[in-house]
Simulated assay, not measured.
Amino acid sequence: MLGHLAGRWTSLIRTALLVEPLLYHALRRAITGISDKSLAATLRSLQHDGLSRAEDRPWTTGPRTSARRARSKPPSPFA
């Protein structure tokens, strides 16, 4: 997990996801210079470690998935 925090693209991706969830191509446009391969690999790695999650967006036209920064702890069921 420490390797993710020191990764070249990890901090840029996590910063971009702070504000709002982004579609893959919007995230790619927000981070200049990142290749498709690097973005996909970094997102997969962050999702695997629970630092990011993918959300399906069925209400949009065509299949779309957005990336969202994972919460530090799950929301309380009593909130």
Rank of each mutant, 00 (worst) to 15 (best):
residue 44 R to F: 00
residue 59 W to R: 08
residue 68 R to N: 05
residue 69 R to Q: 13
residue 61 T to L: 12
residue 66 S to A: 15
residue 68 R to F: 02
residue 40 A to V: 10
residue 39 L to Q: 05
residue 29 R to W: 04
residue 77 P to N: 02
residue 12 L to T: 06
residue 59 W to K: 08
residue 5 L to Y: 13
residue 45 S to P: 00
residue 36 D to T: 12
residue 40 A to M: 10
residue 65 T to H: 03
residue 56 D to A: 13
residue 8 R to G: 04
residue 17 L to N: 02
residue 49 D to Y: 12
residue 34 I to M: 09
residue 14 R to Q: 14
residue 17 L to P: 04
residue 67 A to M: 12
residue 28 R to H: 14
residue 32 T to N: 05
residue 67 A to R: 00
residue 56 D to L: 11
residue 78 F to C: 07
residue 49 D to G: 11
residue 41 A to F: 04
residue 57 R to W: 09
residue 74 P to D: 05
residue 49 D to V: 02
residue 79 A to Y: 10
residue 6 A to S: 14
residue 15 T to L: 13
residue 79 A to V: 12
residue 18 L to C: 07
residue 31 I to E: 01
residue 55 E to I: 12
residue 42 T to M: 13
residue 47 Q to F: 00
residue 5 L to C: 03
residue 64 R to P: 00
residue 2 L to F: 09
residue 50 G to V: 05
residue 21 P to C: 06
residue 7 G to I: 00
residue 61 T to P: 05
residue 52 S to H: 04
residue 71 R to D: 10
residue 23 L to N: 01
residue 69 R to I: 11
residue 38 S to M: 11
residue 29 R to Y: 03
residue 56 D to C: 05
residue 15 T to A: 15
residue 34 I to N: 08
residue 43 L to R: 08
residue 18 L to P: 00
residue 30 A to E: 14
residue 29 R to T: 06
residue 28 R to Q: 15
residue 63 P to W: 09
residue 25 H to G: 01
residue 75 P to K: 13
residue 53 R to M: 09
residue 4 H to W: 06
residue 53 R to G: 02
residue 36 D to N: 15
residue 19 V to I: 06
residue 20 E to R: 15
residue 51 L to Q: 11
residue 18 L to D: 14
residue 9 W to K: 03
residue 6 A to F: 07
residue 73 K to M: 09
residue 13 I to V: 15
residue 11 S to D: 05
residue 27 L to A: 03
residue 61 T to Q: 10
residue 72 S to N: 08
residue 47 Q to R: 09
residue 6 A to H: 08
residue 48 H to Q: 13
residue 79 A to N: 13
residue 53 R to K: 12
residue 38 S to A: 15
residue 8 R to T: 12
residue 26 A to R: 11
